[in-house]
């Protein structure tokens, strides 16, 4: 009898050890990412000084005269993300206010899964749609729009990140206690006035966190831009021209033959490292903002 209890206790300890190990392994993923990106990025910077990486204005690693200025890739990335945010934030905010303050439960029950499905659509399908449907239509409206451009992918990404800009914003607004709304109504404010001057400010950190996560998603998105934005590192802010993003460059190089340790191989890790840092900063800001909601109420 005693040994049975001892056995049970031992088993419990073993299970705890196994479960703890599983949790601990997840840390190794991040450690692995940082290690791989950093070690290969450092080898890259041994061959290409970091000043060149940050000051040159051209990105031509596969040309005979190699230039390694990251800026064309960064401006390309942020140009597309900015277009996506410009499309997504107004649209998302209107939908969020509508769903949280006006819509009936039935509309909400249908609307939320539909909006959240936008993120589940395979991005390669979005890429196809952008290149062969959205761009040709936009070309009829926007003069001088090239077959590869940043406008069309930016707009499609704007819809793709609606689960963050609309759905997460709605969640944040829903979290504002009802009594605050009632107080506003009691003073004679309309629903819209209450939504904009009372509910939105109260939920602002959650709403903005959603926007930032959406932007971060647009920055890290790969296939839509790789298919529809072109493969041309271009230091421009003109949304009609072909560009290349950081993710697009990684895909372009990875598609080719990639000898281990070559400068092209190392360069995707340097670019990846820069991307990881940018994404990390965005996510940290969003997480910090979201932790503030919980403190408020």
């Amino acid at each position: 009898m005693f040994s049975f209890i001892a056995y049970k206790k031992l088993l419990d300890k073993c299970v705890l050890a196994v479960f703890f190990t599983a949790g601990f392994i997840t840390i190794f993923i991040t450690v692995g990412i940082v290690y791989v990106l950093l070690s290969d990025a450092i080898r890259f910077f041994q061959e290409v000084p970091i000043e060149r990486f940050l000051t040159e204005k051209e990105w031509t690693p596969v040309f005979a005269t190699k230039k390694f200025g990251i800026w064309p890739l960064i401006t390309g990335t942020f140009l597309i993300a900015a277009i996506a945010v410009l499309v997504s934030v107004p649209l998302g905010l209107v939908i969020a206010i509508y769903l949280s303050e006006y819509a009936s439960v039935r509309v909400k029950e249908i609307a939320k899964p539909i909006i959240e499905f936008l993120e589940a659509v395979p991005t390669v399908v979005y890429g196809y749609f952008t290149l062969l449907f959205v761009t040709p239509i936009l070309q009829k409206i926007v003069p001088g729009l090239e077959a590869f451009n940043s406008l069309a992918p930016g707009i499609v990404l704007g819809f793709m990140i609606l689960p963050y800009t609309a759905s997460m914003a709605e969640d944040a607004m829903k979290g504002v206690p009802q009594r605050i709304r009632e107080a506003s109504y009691a003073l004679g404010a309309t629903r819209l006035r209450t939504a904009i001057t009372i509910v939105l400010p109260a939920a602002i950190s959650g709403v903005v966190a959603g926007f930032i996560l959406g932007a971060s998603r647009a920055i890290g998105e790969t296939m839509v831009v790789a298919i529809a934005a072109g493969m041309y590192p271009n230091l421009t802010l003109d949304p009609r021209e072909p560009i290349q993003t950081m993710t697009g460059y990684i895909v372009q190089v990875a598609l080719g033959d990639l000898p281990y340790g070559s400068i092209e191989y190392l360069s995707i890790f340097a670019v990846g490292f820069a991307l990881f840092i940018i994404a990390f900063i965005f996510n940290s800001i969003a997480l910090w903002l979201r932790s503030r909601i919980r403190e408020a109420y």
């Binding site: 997840t26 840390i27 993923i29 991040t30 692995g32 990412i33 791989v36 990106l37 996560l213 971060s216 998603r217 920055i219 890290g220 998105e221 790969t222 993710t247 990684i250 895909v251 990875a254 995707i268 890790f269 990846g272 991307l275 990881f276 994404a279 990390f280 965005f282 996510n283 940290s284 969003a286 997480l287």
Partner: peptide, 16 residues
Amino acid sequence: NINNLAAVPAIIYGLL
């Protein structure tokens, strides 16, 4: 860490 991993761009996992 898990919160952060959820938001790391997918292509970074490819590099890893």
